[in-house]
């Protein structure tokens, strides 16, 4: 499996935010995107996911027949958690598992993995900020996608949860997955490539 971005440029509101970004990631690879606010980290992730159009360049993936396009191969964890507050944590995870297809862990086990075991019956709205983030991370585990696109994944997490999340990412990479994370904080990704945004282009 290979994820390649070549000469990528992105724009927001008609203005180029970055250009000439290139990287290539293989099975087990990881890319950490750093840079000051407004340097285009989130834009880069959204472009890779296919949520924003590419301004210049290409993103391509070779991941076999099950995942023909980059978007179909991606889990996207954005700033928002994409969980409904009126539903319970478990209902949320069940929904995404059914909708995404290629199921992996059952919601119970996924919640156990992020340290929320036994809280699945609670409405999502009563969780704390960090717990909500962990529930959103559990979403990455309920169905399989080879590429994880993480936008500030550890915002609001405590040290123990950060360590647990680093383990989850390591396991994912060990299984041949790819992680791309935009962050300001060290994520504990070993041997990851680093991409600094915000250099004058």
């Amino acid at each position: 499996m290979r994820l390649i971005a070549d000469n990528l440029g992105g724009e927001r509101g008609g203005e180029m935010v970055f250009s000439d970004v290139s990287f290539g990631l293989y099975e087990g690879g990881a890319l950490i995107v750093t840079g000051p606010n407004g340097s285009g980290k989130s834009t880069l992730l959204r472009i890779v996911a296919g949520l924003l159009p590419v301004a210049t360049g290409v993103v391509a993936i070779e991941a076999g027949e099950a995942f023909p396009t980059v978007s179909s191969a991606c889990h996207y964890l954005g700033h928002q958690n994409a969980m409904k507050t009126a539903l319970t944590v478990e209902e949320n995870l069940h929904f995404w598992r059914d909708y995404f297809g290629t199921p992996r862990l059952p919601p119970d086990d996924a919640l156990e993995q992020v340290g929320l075991g036994g809280l699945g019956h609670l409405p999502f709205s009563v969780l704390s900020t960090g717990q909500k983030r962990r529930a959103a991370i559990a979403r990455l585990l309920v169905s399989y996608r080879p590429v994880w696109l993480l936008d500030e994944p550890t915002a609001g997490l405590d040290a123990a949860s950060e360590a647990r999340f680093a383990e989850l990412m390591a396991t994912h990479r060990g299984d041949g997955g790819i992680v791309i994370a935009a962050t300001h904080l060290p994520l504990g990704l070993e041997g990851a490539q680093e991409l600094r945004m915000g250099q004058p282009c």
């Binding site: 978007s71 954005g78 928002q80 994409a82 909708y99």
Partner: peptide, 11 residues
């Protein structure tokens, strides 16, 4: 709440 992005991703 960001769900729309994920619905679009599953296209």
């Amino acid at each position: 709440d960001g769900s729309l992005d994920l619905l679009l991703l599953a296209e």
